[in-house]
Nucleic acid binder design. Structure first.
Lengths: 180, 180
DNA sequence: CCGCCCGTGCGACGATTTGCCGCACGGGCT
DNA sequence: AGCCCGTGCGGCAAATCGTCGCACGGGCGG
């Protein structure tokens, strides 16, 4: 397999970061993973990757701050920002700080690479290749999973954040699991 | 009232554009309104405003395209992009094209000015990352708006893509319009 | 001009889901 | 022990959803 570049995945979720890095390796990239802001910055300085994938919310600091510092030190680095939920305000901030693109978890390697490609081109009309729009139920399920994960599985807290009754969340969780 | 600058509102919804422009005028701005891409470009060339507020979806063209052309002709102009639904991808595009900020309708003058202020500052940690998990209803609404947009406002088609009954979509659209 | 198809808006009716109450259990505190 | 929280689940009224149906309007080919 031909080498297509060097990529660094920075996320304090080690399992996720390692999995993503391995997926990039499988696609021919020289892939590394780092677990947190400090580790990410250090590793980036060390391996000088062409591309960095940075999670926004990390325990030891802000991914945006890391993005800023990284691009200050290595202006040619291309950064794709990952986040749990797509916040427009944060997306704007990340873009202003030089991110190539901004996508939401759960993100797999192909989605990141696609975002990288799209982020390189002119941001104009090519709105997007138009995938299948997810059904409402599907979108709801994914959003619930995202928030739930953010609450470390705490159903009561997730229900409060989602603005629905705990009982309702329980029922949704017991009903949906199967298909889309 | 002291003059605080010149602002141009560009939206093909004349009522909305006029109302917004008048609100700016009430706040001391020299305000103009233009109704569409062509009219917007022409008027901008004419009055050379300090700030432009551009709606994204206009009948006679793309607000993004207008943004690009405007900033090519007048690099110092500050542009705030307005859109009906908050799409992260579009927000990224607008920012790359030089928009100062990006906000969703319904937007009143104060929100636009606030966005302008915030957009001018360094986009850093100040207002921390996105620890504002959107409520389920909010996420549902945004997803619906996105798909509806993809369908050019075709409710029947959107309902099919969303996997719900047309009647249900109609009811949701008639109920939610408010916010949160 | 007339069907025909499609999209839209809305009323009505059961079927389903949701909101909100309750209760019981368990774990981690003080 | 008490207290606070989170969890799972039953029940019941209220809201919502799915599914009909009907009317209206706009293209479009015959």
């Amino acid at each position: 397999m031909t080498d297509v570049g060097s990529i660094l995945v920075i996320d304090d979720d080690r399992i996720f970061a390692d999995r993503l890095a391995r997926a990039f390796a499988d696609r021919g990239w020289t892939a590394n993973a780092a677990y947190g802001v400090r580790d990410g910055f250090r590793t980036a300085m060390e391996v000088e990757p062409d591309v960095a994938v940075i999670d926004l919310k990390m325990g030891d600091g802000s991914g945006l701050e890391l993005l800023k510092q990284l691009r200050a030190q290595m202006p040619e680095i291309e950064v794709v920002v990952l986040t749990g939920y797509g916040s427009v305000a944060t997306a704007v901030d990340a873009t202003k700080l030089g991110a190539v693109n901004f996508i939401t978890k759960p993100a797999h390697a192909d989605m990141v690479l696609d975002a990288l490609e799209r982020g390189r081109g002119e941001p104009l009309v090519p709105h997007e290749p138009d995938y299948a729009p997810p059904s409402l139920a599907r979108a709801e399920w994914e959003h619930i999973q995202r928030v739930l994960e953010d609450c470390d599985g705490n159903i009561s807290q997730a229900a409060r954040l989602l603005g629905l009754h705990r009982r309702t969340l329980q029922r949704k969780l017991n009903k949906y699991p199967p298909n889309q």
